[in-house]
Amino acid sequence: MFVIECPWCGPRDQSEFSCGGEAHISRPAERSDMSDEEWAEFVFMRTNAKGLFAERWNHAAGCRRWFNVLRNTSTDEILAVYRMGETPPDVSTGLPATPCGEAEIGSGNDAAKVMVEAADGTTNTRDTV
């Protein structure tokens, strides 16, 4: 259970929320010339990103508002929360995962369980005894 910061109610337990899947997929206006493929893209096709992902959440047990969340699906880190209709904030700096590779830390993946101690002390490791 992670914590989600509802734009209105503040940080609350994940159990109060329901996830609505990928964000920023707007319903196309009715167009007779729209091909089946274009329509299917809207109805059926969703990104299944590893890494940065914009998704919709609803504070179902609280204020019932829908809002957007930028989450790293590899680490469950929530990088930003913003209201409907707002553009996603820029979170590219300090992002702890690459969308295609493994997060350096936080994913629980084998590749990220052990590290070599950095010589320059960039990590929070203590001094060697």
Partner: peptide, 17 residues
């Protein structure tokens, strides 16, 4: 989900990052 580091003096892993 912290990362471990191997410590020769302890011959064991300890918290890294």
């Amino acid at each position: 989900r912290g990362r471990l580091v191997y410590d020769d003096a302890l011959a064991a892993f300890r918290p890294g990052q």
